[in-house]
Design a protein around this nucleic acid. Structure first.
Length: 424
RNA sequence: GUGGGUGUAGCUCAGUUGGUUAGAGUGCCGGGUUGUGGCCCCGGAGGUCGAGGGUUCAAAUCCCUUCACUCACCCCA
């Protein structure tokens, strides 16, 4: 009978990797707390309608990548493909906007998209999301970006490129869109098959195409920045001015666009060459129309999403945390000694120390081997003799120094272990 | 959804133009040496060669199908 494996694109995160994950998550919590960003936890499952409205009916995510099913009650439900729509739903549903003029929220967890897996892309993947809701002050944009860069540096990332652009607003973007479409209208033959399709659905995305012919064609195309309205232009200039003030280097990428419909004005991306084709670690931007689109008041917002798998895969060695090594290994020879070791190790654990013991009746040599492999700081050896005399040798694994401890007073033992602990 | 690459021991991989009982390193188990662990030495266990079918006297090797993994397109974090 064939063994059962995990679902395609759904990965196990094994104990040897979880320390890295915790390190990233804990760093995020610490950094975000300094900036007054509070955690919000949202469900993994939402009504399908939320994503249809929030992300856009015509996007690939909604059209063909969502895990959607008909619930027994008759509702169509969907495993969340992103977090922003849910966060705003919760923000509106609980009227958080009545409590404070600006809500800074973060959440982290798995997202689900049924794409073909490849490097840096999985069907279940994890994001860290931050949303600043309530104000459209350009200082908010710059603060969010500043915090993002600060966080990425704090987890040890280097060689990052921050690119920003403005996508305009519902007042000025339609005009640009028309302009672009008419520019491309007579050049359709020069475009690849995909781009011809995009011409009808989402012409801005042609800027992202990697095909040689399309790149040449788009090179002469009008750019959004030349068409945005005065308000959007002023907003974008202010964002840049504040980024300068905060010493955050960036590059204006006049060709950068977004895949999701809800983005307005400021858009940004952090990329790296270390990730292969999926080179975006972070994408984000302003979405001033989204809360209203989801049935709430007209409240502005801006946010970003970090791809945690991508972030972790580009972390330099040594920057990540590690799982704690045991303080003590208790080697035992014989059933009685093993019983004693069992009682002692569990009491030590309950007192806050990390203790390991051997359950098999292997020889001392192989027990020592295991203690060494586990990276234990001390090994205590208990045999018939030790039980009789009441003293057992405690060996320091790195230095090799050895001394006897009284088995009758585990407090002494625990004191020795603790002093060592504070010293290291 | 479309294309390329790869599936041999727990892990990383050899396996020549098809040719006896399919190998190495590492890990695991046992033993020797060592002051009770790291180094070294000896021995041992472990493989439906991804799966199914075909060609052949003979298939890990050639052909077809299928599945999985992987990279890229698409899309996006």
């Amino acid at each position: 009978m064939a063994s059962i494996t995990s679902v395609r694109g759904f990965k196990d995160i094994l104990p040897e990797e979880t320390a890295k994950w915790r390190y990233v998550e804990e760093t995020a919590r610490r950094v975000f707390a300094c900036f007054g960003v509070k955690e919000i936890r949202i469900p993994l499952l939402e009504k399908t309608e939320l994503f249809k409205r929030g992300i856009g009916e015509a996007t690939d995510i909604v059209e063909k990548e969502m895990y959607t099913f008909l619930d027994r009650g008759g509702d169509y439900l969907t495993l969340r493909p992103e977090a922003t729509a849910s966060v705003i739903r919760a923000y509106l549903e609980h009227h958080l906007y009545t409590k404070e003029p600006l809500s800074k929220l973060y959440t982290m967890g798995p997202m689900f998209r049924r794409e073909r897996p490849q490097k840096g892309r999985f069907r279940q993947f994890h994001q860290i999301n931050v949303e600043f809701l309530g104000l459209d002050d350009p200082r908010i944009d710059s603060e969010l970006i500043f915090m993002l860069i600060h966080f990425l540096r704090a987890v040890g990332l280097e060689d990052l490129t921050l690119e920003i652009n403005s996508l305009g607003c519902p007042l000025c973007r339609p005009a640009f869109r028309d302009r672009l479409t008419s520019f491309l209208a007579d050049k359709e033959n020069a475009l690849c098959e995909d781009c011809r399709r995009r011409l009808g659905t989402n012409p801005l995305r042609i800027f992202d195409c990697k095909q040689e012919g399309c790149r040449e064609t788009i090179a002469g195309a009008p750019l959004i920045l030349d068409y945005i309205c005065d308000d959007c232009d002023a907003h974008f200039k202010e964002v840049q001015r504040h980024l300068d003030t905060l010493d955050t280097p960036y590059r204006v990428n006049r060709r950068m666009v977004r895949g999701l419909d809800y983005y307005t004005r400021t858009a940004f991306e952090v990329t790296t060459s270390a990730l292969g084709a999926q080179n975006a670690v972070t994408g984000g931007g302003r979405y001033d129309g989204l809360p209203k689109l989801l049935g709430g008041p007209d409240i502005p917002g801006i946010g970003f999403a970090i791809g945690v798998e991508r972030l972790i895969s580009m972390q330099p060695a040594g920057a990540e945390g590690s799982n704690a090594n045991p303080d003590l290994f208790i080697a035992s020879l014989g059933e009685k000694a093993r019983d004693f070791a069992y009682g002692l190790s569990n009491r030590l654990r309950a007192s806050g120390l990390i203790a390991e013991m051997e359950f098999s009746d292997k020889g001392l040599k192989s027990q020592m081997k295991r203690a060494n492999k586990l990276g234990c700081r001390y090994t205590l050896i208990i045999g018939e003799n030790e039980l009789a005399t009441g003293n057992a040798p405690l060996r320091q694994m790195d230095g090799g120094e050895q001394r006897d401890v009284a088995l009758s007073s585990p407090r002494d033992l625990s004191a020795i272990l603790r002093t060592g602990k504070t010293n290291t």
